[in-house]
Amino acid sequence: MRSSSGVSIIHPRVRESAEACQAEFVSAAPFPHVVIDDFLAPDFAAALLENFPAFERGNSVGDDGKPGGKSTLAKIRQLGPAWQQLDNAIQSPEFLEAISKLTGIDDLIYDPWYLGGGTHENRNGMSLDPHVDFNYHPSERWHRRLNLIVYLNPEWDAQWGGCLELFRDPHADARPARSVAPAFNRCVIFETSERSWHAFSRIELPPEHANLTRRSVALYFYTKERPAAETAPRHTTYYVNRQLPMHLDEGHTLTRSDVAEIKQLIEQRDGHIHMLYAENTALRQAQDAGLTGHLLYLAKRAFVRFRK
């Protein structure tokens, strides 16, 4: 059964400041967003953390088909009463209306399948390149409109990395326009669009905290309609490799740290290229398979032989 009051999980102070939050959201650079500390009711946030799933329980297989340092779990109702309460709350009309008041985006739709969302956990050394998200729900004709992320890290220093980064244009900018540390019960809500470039910086934990992980819950919201000026053809998540750090300029003497960072950037770029080649190969194999593939083969053969 749904909670009788979906807004009960939100800290009362947040609801009271909805008008100010919306003003901040609409005017924020480099694209609409708002950062809200102590977003959830304190006891509720603590309950989510206490019942956060073990890394091994989630899906840690990366885009390359191999186990990696990121684990996600979409079936959050399996995690106990607190997570069931979260799921009940965020689909309620009261909660959706509260988020609309915080952002100015009306008629929001909850995703019952948590596609791409749910719990996220990242280990030491992980990072995420700048990207814009897929713009339509994978199985519905819904426009993706909002990402709502709540961080669940009671012990975290911004110097350890893992900070959410918001970019104006990652094709040109080496530095984000804004960086947000993933502090406990901090919520970031941002509009998903063709310019909502975001990432998170590489996690570099000190030896005494090497076993910590970056934990969060990611919730995505949709609408059936979107202003025509903001609408684009359907696409998947689009990544951009990071630029070289600004200090790596003519005359600079490379340090050991610089060399390590350059190697990491090259490895990430090579990995991205390898993934694109693998996707291209898979598409060609699918294209060649079955009756459709055979007919396409015959059509290509005929074209080559008779084009003269």
Score class of each variant (00 low, 15 high):
residue 138 P to I: 08
residue 171 H to A: 15
residue 155 E to L: 10
residue 143 H to T: 10
residue 160 W to D: 03
residue 131 H to N: 07
residue 182 P to M: 03
residue 176 P to D: 05
residue 145 R to I: 01
residue 138 P to N: 07
residue 125 G to T: 05
residue 158 A to Y: 11
residue 177 A to Y: 10
residue 166 L to R: 01
residue 162 G to D: 00
residue 170 P to R: 00
residue 131 H to A: 00
residue 176 P to W: 02
residue 172 A to K: 15
residue 161 G to V: 00
residue 181 A to L: 03
residue 144 R to E: 04
residue 152 L to A: 05
residue 137 H to T: 11
residue 181 A to P: 07
residue 171 H to G: 13
residue 155 E to A: 13
residue 148 L to G: 06
residue 150 V to M: 08
residue 178 R to A: 12
residue 153 N to H: 08
residue 159 Q to P: 11
residue 143 H to N: 11
residue 154 P to I: 05
residue 160 W to L: 02
residue 152 L to W: 05
residue 180 V to A: 05
residue 167 F to C: 00
residue 180 V to C: 08
residue 175 R to V: 12
residue 176 P to T: 00
residue 140 E to L: 15
residue 140 E to D: 12
residue 128 L to S: 00
residue 177 A to G: 13
residue 171 H to L: 14
residue 130 P to I: 09
residue 131 H to F: 07
residue 141 R to G: 14
residue 149 I to F: 05
residue 164 L to S: 01
residue 152 L to D: 04
residue 158 A to F: 09
residue 134 F to W: 15
residue 146 L to W: 02
residue 159 Q to S: 14
residue 180 V to M: 07
residue 152 L to C: 06
residue 132 V to H: 01
residue 156 W to Y: 08
residue 151 Y to D: 08
residue 183 A to K: 13
residue 138 P to R: 09
residue 148 L to D: 00
residue 158 A to P: 12
residue 153 N to D: 10
residue 139 S to R: 13
residue 132 V to P: 03
residue 132 V to I: 14
residue 127 S to I: 09
residue 169 D to E: 13
residue 142 W to Y: 10
residue 157 D to F: 08
residue 141 R to V: 11
residue 162 G to F: 02
residue 182 P to N: 09
residue 130 P to T: 07
residue 166 L to A: 03
residue 173 D to Q: 06
residue 158 A to T: 04
residue 137 H to S: 04
residue 132 V to L: 03
residue 150 V to L: 10
residue 146 L to Q: 07
residue 163 C to F: 01
residue 138 P to C: 04
residue 176 P to V: 03
residue 128 L to P: 02
residue 141 R to C: 13
residue 176 P to N: 06
residue 177 A to D: 14
residue 134 F to P: 03
residue 179 S to P: 08
residue 129 D to H: 11
residue 157 D to S: 13
residue 172 A to H: 14
residue 165 E to I: 04
residue 173 D to L: 04
residue 164 L to Y: 04
residue 176 P to C: 08
residue 168 R to I: 13
residue 167 F to P: 00
residue 138 P to K: 07
residue 167 F to A: 02
residue 174 A to R: 03
residue 166 L to D: 04
residue 137 H to M: 07
residue 182 P to T: 06
residue 169 D to N: 12
residue 142 W to T: 05
residue 141 R to N: 15
residue 167 F to E: 01
residue 175 R to Y: 13
residue 179 S to A: 11
residue 167 F to D: 00
residue 129 D to E: 14
residue 132 V to A: 03
residue 145 R to N: 10
residue 141 R to M: 13
residue 161 G to Q: 03
residue 154 P to A: 07
residue 169 D to A: 06
residue 148 L to N: 09
residue 181 A to Y: 02
residue 136 Y to G: 12
residue 163 C to P: 02
residue 152 L to M: 11
residue 132 V to Y: 07
residue 146 L to T: 09
residue 128 L to I: 01
residue 157 D to N: 12
residue 128 L to H: 00
residue 131 H to S: 02
residue 160 W to G: 04
residue 167 F to K: 01
residue 143 H to M: 10
residue 161 G to C: 09
residue 172 A to C: 14
residue 153 N to S: 05
residue 125 G to P: 03
residue 158 A to C: 07
residue 181 A to I: 00
residue 175 R to K: 15
residue 178 R to T: 13
residue 164 L to H: 05
residue 172 A to T: 15
residue 168 R to W: 12
